[in-house]
Amino acid sequence: MSTITLKNIRIFTNHGCLIEEEKIGSDYLVNLKVKADLSKASETDHLKDTVDYVHLQHIVKNEMAVRSKLLEHVGQRIIDRIFQEIDLVTKAKVTISKLNPPIGGDVEEVSVTMKSQR
């Protein structure tokens, strides 16, 4: 089993429970790890035999653009879509971090990690 990691995908979007978060938006970092059998790709050197990280980034970007109140909801949508669209992926782990959250204190980020397997 092999791992593909996308680290610190930076996205500006409008998630959160507060009305202000919907209007103002925030910066987010998304980290994604997927597990898959990449042995065929290592032999063939063909993109069709691996998990295309451009496809993974596209899924993250599209799902992060859909407003949600909870990061848990967004994280699970990302995982569900990966499993729907990429058959090679057997496990997925996504961490979504909201930078400078509006929680009334000096907090650099809050994060939620979701993981699942087929």
Rank of each mutant, 00 (worst) to 15 (best):
M1S: 14
T5M: 11
I9T: 13
H15T: 15
H15L: 04
C17F: 09
I19E: 11
I19A: 07
I24W: 12
I24H: 13
G25P: 01
G25F: 14
S26N: 12
L29S: 14
V30R: 12
L32S: 10
K33D: 06
V34E: 15
K35F: 05
K35D: 01
K35G: 02
K35M: 06
A36G: 02
A36T: 07
D37N: 08
D37I: 00
S39M: 07
K40V: 11
K40D: 05
A41D: 07
L47M: 02
D49E: 01
T50Y: 01
T50K: 03
H55R: 03
H58I: 01
N62I: 01
E63R: 04
A65W: 02
A65D: 07
V66I: 12
R67A: 04
L70T: 06
E72P: 15
E72S: 11
H73I: 08
G75P: 15
G75K: 04
R77S: 10
I82F: 08
I82W: 04
Q84L: 02
I86N: 15
L88M: 10
V89K: 15
A92H: 03
K93F: 10
K93R: 03
K98N: 11
N100K: 09
P101L: 13
P102A: 00
I103W: 05
G105D: 06
D106I: 10
V107K: 09
V107D: 06
E108K: 10
V110W: 03
V112C: 11
M114F: 10
M114A: 09
Q117C: 07
Q117R: 07
R118F: 05
